[in-house]
Write a protein that binds this DNA or RNA. Structure first.
Length: 489
RNA sequence: GGCGGCGUACCCAAGUGGUUAAGGGAGAGGUCUGCAAAACCUCCAUGCAUCGGUUCGAAUCCGAUCGCCGCCUCCA
């Protein structure tokens, strides 16, 4: 099997993936900010993270995955001014910041479950030195770790303390005229803070806050060696990745928009604190765009969420298939029609799984002809996560099974589904009959009797009646089966 | 101003130097079926924004033009 290859934003090239220690991958992915629901654009990013994690596991790696939850520190204007968005929501809703965060975290977890996105387990309390471990961690639970990192940065001479906060000295870090490693823009080229008021305490407009002081109106404040305040918005990622995964990460993911500022600053902070390389592979996903081609974003105000799809009677996993149908580095156009098209794929695969016969299921050895598909699947997957081709391979294999009337593909299909995350296994023994209300069963039975009498007028009448009640009747060789159309789950 | 990306059939979307340009949806015809549904078969881009160039050969590399979008402020 070809080794896993992935596009590394640090070098702007597809590279063979080699983790620092054999067999183990430390993976940090930027998680949600929890002051609003996650829109579908956000969810695309998490589907990507999940798929990447599954692909690594498929390649035999033990993935230690950390995702942060930002429940503090994102300002409406800049790191050193403006109102914390969580606090803003809290004031608007008359809740505490923690309550606001809890609410949106619960919603996020629900959405992830609907999309079969496996999240890391909640971070356990206390200190966690090596070995690296998976964790879903909240910023506000890790203030100590952040303070520790800021302390190291200041001790190393890359941070300076002022009355309004502790700032990171970007020019000192980059050197004169230095360009960012990811964005490849020099400081002069970046019109940083051009449209913003910035604190006069900063040596340079490019400098960013590590710790913010003297903002008495903020609800969330913590004591620190520099005074009471709160963390800047980049530091949580440096601190938590280091705490749970170690000082050098194998993989770091995030949205494309994080390249020039957030990740650039994370690298600077982390490396100035530790003296070690921060992350060896940076991967960035492209945006989901609306029908007009415009980015879907929180700040734009209106955005579709997963519940909108569910309310429209669409299987949430259709959205997952939609995501898998495009490369993670390509913009993906979202529309109800594109999701519905993806839903057909889900229906197709589910139907196949549902109708698998016992012989095919119990066969330990898949048909010889599946090997070719397995090879194509791996190749696509390991080629910078080419999920569209991987998905196409799966669909073609199932079509081939139908064509050859040879269902011995389940082992292979299941391996594929471990990566795709469509939960086909769940459909295996899902009976099409016996679960519906007695009233429905009665009508189906009556219709079967009508068919036996060749009373097709009555038969069609009953089919229409069942259809109106939300049930689809199919006549098979083994008799009539009924399924609920677009049921709630 | 700087940086980056995109433009492939009605729609979504792979392919990035070399057999007939994946796959899905929609559409058309067919097999099967009492009729449907499901499934399968056939058809559906001599062409990949436009114009030049490099090459034996380009959707794929280079240049120009047009159009769209993102980032440089929180945002996946």
């Amino acid at each position: 099997m070809k080794p896993f290859q992935i596009y590394n934003s640090l070098h702007r090239a597809v590279e063979e993936f080699v983790p620092l220690r054999p067999g183990i991958v430390t993976f940090y992915s930027c998680g949600p900010t929890v002051y609003l629901p996650q829109h579908l654009g956000n969810m695309r990013a998490y589907v990507f993270v999940d798929t990447l994690r599954r692909a690594l596991r498929f390649n035999g790696y033990d993935v230690r995955h950390v995702m942060n939850i930002t429940d503090v520190g994102h300002m409406t204007s800049d790191a050193d001014a403006g109102e914390d968005k969580i606090e803003k929501t809290a004031r608007a809703q008359g809740k505490s910041p923690r309550e606001v965060a809890d609410f949106y975290i619960a919603q996020f977890k629900r959405d992830c479950a609907s999309l079969n996105i496996e999240l890391p387990p909640a971070a356990p309390a206390g200190d966690h030195p090596a070995p690296p471990q998976s964790a879903l961690c909240r910023a506000t639970d890790n203030i100590d770790a952040m303070i520790a990192v800021i302390g190291r940065i200041v001790a190393n001479g890359y941070g300076y303390v002022t009355p309004s906060g502790v700032y990171f000295d970007v020019e000192k870090w980059r050197g004169p005229g230095g360009a960012g490693r990811l964005a490849r823009q020099s400081l002069a080229e970046q019109h940083a803070g051009q449209r913003l008021e910035h604190s006069p305490d900063k040596k340079s407009p490019h400098d960013f806050a590590l710790w913010v002081l003297n903002q008495p109106h903020h609800l969330m404040q913590w004591d620190s060696p520099w005074g009471r305040g709160y963390p800047g918005w980049h530091i949580e990622c440096s601190a938590m990745s280091m705490k749970y995964l170690g000082e050098t990460l194998d993989l770091h993911s995030g949205g494309l928009d994080h390249i020039p500022v957030h990740h650039e600053n994370e690298i600077a902070q982390s490396e100035s604190a530790t003296g070690h390389p921060f992350a060896r592979y940076f991967v960035h996903n492209a945006f989901l765009v609306g029908m007009e081609g415009a980015k879907i974003s929180k700040s734009a105000g209106r955005f579709p969420v997963l519940d909108d799809l569910i309310a429209a009677g669409i299987n949430p996993l259709a959205f997952r298939v939609l995501c898998l149908g495009a490369k993670y580095r390509s913009e993906l156009a979202f529309s109800i029609d594109s999701v519905r098209a993806a839903e057909k794929n889900i229906d197709y695969l589910n139907e196949f799984a549902r109708n698998l016969n016992e012989t095919a299921l119990s066969s330990e050895q898949d048909a010889d002809w599946t090997a070719e598909y397995a090879e194509r699947f791996c190749e696509a997957l390991n080629n910078d996560l080419n999920t569209p081709q991987a998905l196409a391979t799966v669909l073609e294999m199932v079509a081939q099974a139908y064509r050859l009337r040879d269902q011995r593909i389940w082992n292979t299909l299941q391996n594929f589904d471990d990566v795709l995350g469509l939960d086909l296994k769940k459909k295996l023994f899902e009976s099409s009959t016996g679960l519906e209300p007695p009233e429905i069963s009665r009508l189906v039975k009556e219709r079967e009797e009508a068919r036996e009498r060749k009373d097709f007028a009555r038969s069609d009448e009953l089919r229409n009646q069942l259809d109106a009640m939300g049930y689809l009747v199919k006549d098979t060789k083994k008799g009539s089966v009924v399924t609920a159309k677009r049921s709630a789950t």
